[in-house]
Each structure stands twice: as structure tokens, then as C-alpha cells.
């Protein structure tokens, strides 16, 4: 009888711990999700950063209080990979469907003239509109609805500690390796179009775009983490 009582109280304590952990995680996630929505919008990123950091701080606090919350690396990778995909999507969605808006014609072409004339040279001349550089539209069509959308979905599953989230993040981050390799090869082959008459060519492009390598930082973690923790 006493063994049963001990076991019952142990289960109660575990249940309470579990419940408190879930609440703490959800509280932190609410801040981080709001922050990530702003971060993914690019221009409102400054608003999103303090919200996101507040969520991170709450999660850290819960972790220090002994609650079972998500590992910091999983949180950082999940949100950052989603934000990275959202930022890529915004720029390319503008080019795909909003190429004749004033915003796109100033922002994309200013960016193009500064770093990569793929977004300046014969812009809005193709029947489909937007960038006319060889291969650019094909990359947009391949990566926008497939890689970036899938990566955001995978990041959500990953943040929920789901097995499929981990698996699909591995897949979509490897997509990223293919995308970078193909994209850079295409740019290099048509370098005259991309970098002639550009204010800050090649090095400027690399300095600007290097921070989009988050999928590459995620991959070593995804392959070395103990994947049994993704069991939901």
C-alpha cells in the first residue's frame, strides 16, 4: 500500500512538473512566435527582436528553474531557419508577383544595382515580369513553393519536437545546400550580367548574403544531436 502511495505521489509530481514545463514553454513560445512573425517581415525586424529575445529569456529562466523545456539550440535553429526562409520568400515573392509595385521597383532594383544586377538588368521585360537574368526565375519557381515553404513547415514540427520535424528539417536544409550550390554556379556562369555596372559586386553580395547560411549551421547539429529527443 505504501509503495503504491509513493508511486502515486511520484506520478503526481511528474505530472505537475510536466504541466509547469509545458506552460513555461508555451509562455516563452508566444513571445518568440510574435517576434518571429515580425523578424520574417524584414522591415519590422527591429520590433520583432526584443519580443523574440524576451521569449528566449523566459525559456532560459524556466530551464534554470529546473523545468523541462526545449533545448536552446533547437529553439534557435527552429525559429532562425523559419525566419531565414520567410525573408527569402518575401524578396522572391515580391519579384514573382509584385514586380510592378513601386516598392519592388525601387527596393529590388536598388538592391540589384548595389549588389546583383540580376535584379536590374532588363528588369520587368520578361512576360512574367521581374528579374530577367538567365536562370533566376527558374530558381524562384523551384525554391519558393518547395524549399522555403517546406522548410517553414519542417521548422514548426521541429520546434514541437516531432520526429518528422527533425527529419524534414534535415531534408530541407540539404535542399539548401543544393540551392546555394546551383544558385551561385548560375550567378558565376552569368557573372557579366550580374556584376557589370554594379556598385558593390561579388564581395558585396557575399557580405550581404552570407548570413543566410543558417541551414548550413543547422545541418551539423541535426546530424549530431541525440535524435531520440524528437519523440513527440
Amino acid at each position: 500500500m505504501s509503495e503504491l502511495t509513493t508511486s502515486m505521489s511520484g506520478m503526481n509530481a511528474l505530472g505537475t512538473h510536466d504541466e509547469r514545463s509545458r506552460q513555461a514553454q508555451w509562455q516563452a513560445d508566444k513571445w518568440m512566435m510574435s517576434g518571429a512573425l515580425f523578424l520574417g517581415s524584414a522591415v519590422f525586424g527591429i520590433i520583432g527582436l526584443p519580443l523574440f529575445l524576451r521569449g528566449l529569456a523566459l525559456q532560459l529562466k524556466a530551464q534554470r528553474a529546473g523545468l523541462t523545456v526545449r533545448p536552446m539550440m533547437v529553439t534557435l535553429i527552429g525559429y532562425l531557419v523559419a525566419v531565414d526562409a520567410a525573408l527569402n520568400s518575401i524578396g522572391w515573392a515580391l519579384d514573382m508577383v509584385a514586380h510592378h509595385t513601386l516598392l519592388a521597383r525601387v527596393f529590388l532594383m536598388a538592391w540589384g544595382n548595389m549588389f546583383d544586377a540580376g535584379y536590374f538588368w532588363h528588369y520587368n521585360e520578361l512576360w512574367i515580369g521581374g528579374a530577367s537574368a538567365p536562370g533566376e526565375k527558374a530558381w524562384e519557381i523551384a525554391l519558393l513553393p518547395l524549399v522555403f515553404s517546406m522548410r517553414i513547415a519542417a521548422a514548426i514540427g521541429f520546434l514541437q519536437m516531432k520526429r518528422w520535424g527533425h527529419q524534414w528539417l534535415v531534408i530541407t536544409c540539404w535542399f539548401g545546400v543544393v540551392a546555394w550550390t546551383g544558385y551561385i554556379a548560375n550567378m558565376t556562369i552569368f557573372a557579366d550580367v550580374r556584376y557589370t555596372g554594379v556598385v558593390f559586386p561579388v564581395i558585396g553580395w557575399w557580405l550581404y548574403d552570407i548570413f543566410y547560411i543558417t541551414p548550413f549551421l543547422a545541418l551539423p547539429y541535426l546530424h549530431s544531436v541525440n535524435r531520440e529527443i524528437f519523440s513527440h
Partner: peptide
């Protein structure tokens, strides 16, 4: 050790992406 360095890289990328996103235009 590797995870620690990856985490540092992620924080750098996060900060840089936010600043780029907010100030580029």
C-alpha cells in the same frame, strides 16, 4: 564543443539578418 560554436554562429546570423532586414530598404 561543436554545438557551442554552432550556437554562437546562429546568434550572429540572427542579429545580422534582423539588422539587414530592417535597414536595407
Amino acid at each position: 564543443g561543436m554545438h557551442k560554436w554552432l550556437q554562437r554562429g546562429l546568434v550572429v546570423c540572427l542579429t545580422a539578418l534582423v539588422l539587414e532586414g530592417a535597414f536595407t530598404f
